[in-house]
Design a protein around this nucleic acid. Structure first.
Lengths: 211, 211
DNA sequence: ATTATCTATAGATCTATAGATAATGC
DNA sequence: ATTATCTATAGATCTATAGATAATGC
């Protein structure tokens, strides 16, 4: 079961809600402070949950914050994924992913801060966007659209550049986000072996809007 | 004064030593745990420094850990810089930087862990390797060696890829580090507009050894 | 005489748990 | 009857500071 089945009865639902409130609070704290030194008390308070409940769900703060990062990456993957449905060309997929990510700095700033601070450690994780990105890179290599040899290395390079795009968007909000994203996607596509004219064209195609 | 003048008298030297012991301890903790939640007591103990001395040098843990990251980035910059002296071609400089960084995962693992966890936030910092990397990119663009238009964007892409190389080296020590580094440098050079044959040749040239 | 370091400590805060309360399943 | 939540709390730990000690400058 890729997504855990929705809880059946009221008991399990209430339990899941408490857990999720804690994860949400941890995500907020990560986005605001960038670190994990908030006390369990403060986290529970922000989650509006009894202090002792924390221990019903997590054994340590580390465990909670790991769940919080995974939760954020999963949401990121789902937002992007939903918006690029129907795009087949791997090059266009990648370009759309870059441009949509740049927009999420405005629409989902908290999520993007977590991505910037923690994303690099999860580039090759089996959660979030990475597995799908890897698959798309493999498809592109197999079809000859990309001419680089190694999909894992390509994922590293693409992922690292995407993280730096997020950092750039958050640190320099004055820059034109769409322009920067297209430019970086353009560079990445050339890196993967897409001819410059194709790369340029594909990174300027119209894009589905972000809710 | 780019580097602070070496302290003149014994007083200032002792003070600098205490401060540096604290920074060193903070760097160790960052490398080992990845976070900043260690207590000031534990930090002072590890630095072998009286507890109260902490407050002679720093007002908060945040301040200390920021100094620790800056210190690590500065050392990274100096190690790389010393090893690429005499290389003029911007493309070869960049390739050498990638390959030497990959080797530092073995020779300076603690430094590299800090770079992986915190480097992204300092890509456009005016400390460490970034200013020189930016300058080399600008030189390469001016001379026509690189055909991309924007040095700041290039620094983002190159820096992000370098961070992901560090992450890859630390997380997958079984991969051939030299090979991975050359391959990624190759991709990055093509991204910057270097012709594929040139990129391949320049990333395989012999390299100065790392001490 | 000056300045940094160290030791000791008061008060605040944090963690982990125990026991009471409330909600649901069967 | 079962299970999660909440409240209260003991004991540990942490922060910030005050005051004593040691090292150096002049």
């Amino acid at each position: 079961m890729p997504t855990p089945a929705p809880p059946k009865n009221r008991f399990e639902r209430r339990r899941a809600e408490t857990r999720h409130a804690l994860v949400r609070a941890a995500r907020q704290i990560l986005a605001e402070t960038g670190d994990t030194s908030a006390s369990i008390q403060a986290i529970a308070e922000r989650a509006d949950v009894g202090f002792g409940s924390f221990y019903n769900h997590f054994e340590s703060k580390t465990e909670l914050f790991d769940a919080a990062v995974t939760d954020a990456l999963e949401e990121f993957g789902q937002v992007i994924d939903a918006r690029v449905l129907g795009i087949d060309d791997p090059a266009e997929l990648l370009a759309a992913g870059f441009r949509l990510t740049a927009r999420m700095a405005d629409s989902h700033p908290e999520l993007m801060r977590i991505l910037r601070d923690r994303g690099l450690g999860y580039i090759h994780s089996d959660r979030g966007l990475s597995p799908r990105a890897l698959r798309d890179l493999e498809i592109g290599i197999a079809s000859g659209r990309f001419t680089c040899g190694n999909a894992t290395l390509a994922l590293s390079a693409v992922g690292g550049t995407l993280m730096s795009l997020v950092a750039l968007r958050l640190d320099r909000p004055a820059l034109d986000g769409d322009e920067v994203a297209s430019e970086l996607a353009d560079m990445v596509l050339r890196m993967l072996g897409v001819p410059p004219e194709d790369a340029r064209e594909v990174t300027r195609r119209p894009l589905p809007d972000l809710g």
